[in-house]
């Protein structure tokens, strides 16, 4: 199952593109997706601790703009947005 992770705010530092792609097992949870992103940071950015903090503090949101909790099971390939800590205004 392919998850396209759309990057926003501070998470844009994770790639030159505006998204990352992950292959996950069917019915993976948001918790597992979060782990996969941390693994990617370990491999691609030598475990950059500031990037990992961003991931741990981020929310995730579906294509239908619904926030997904930690135990939410992803059942099909889809786009998911990572929502790092916010600060507009």
């Amino acid at each position: 199952m392919k998850i396209t992770l759309e990057l926003y705010g501070a998470s844009r530092q994770f790639s030159k593109k505006s998204f990352l792609e992950f292959n996950l097992k069917k019915k993976s949870s948001i918790k597992e997706l979060r782990k996969e992103i941390i693994n990617y940071i370990d491999k691609s950015f030598k475990g950059n601790s500031s990037y990992k903090r961003i991931i741990k503090a981020s929310a995730f949101c579906s294509e239908k703009d619904i926030f997904l909790n930690e135990n939410y099971k992803i059942i099909r390939s889809q786009k998911i947005s990572i929502i790092p800590p916010i600060g507009g205004g």
Binding site: A57, F67, P84, P85, G87
Partner: peptide, 10 residues
């Protein structure tokens, strides 16, 4: 630099 911000993780 990106500003730290407020987490909206539930």
């Amino acid at each position: 630099s990106w500003l730290k911000g407020v987490s909206i993780k539930k």
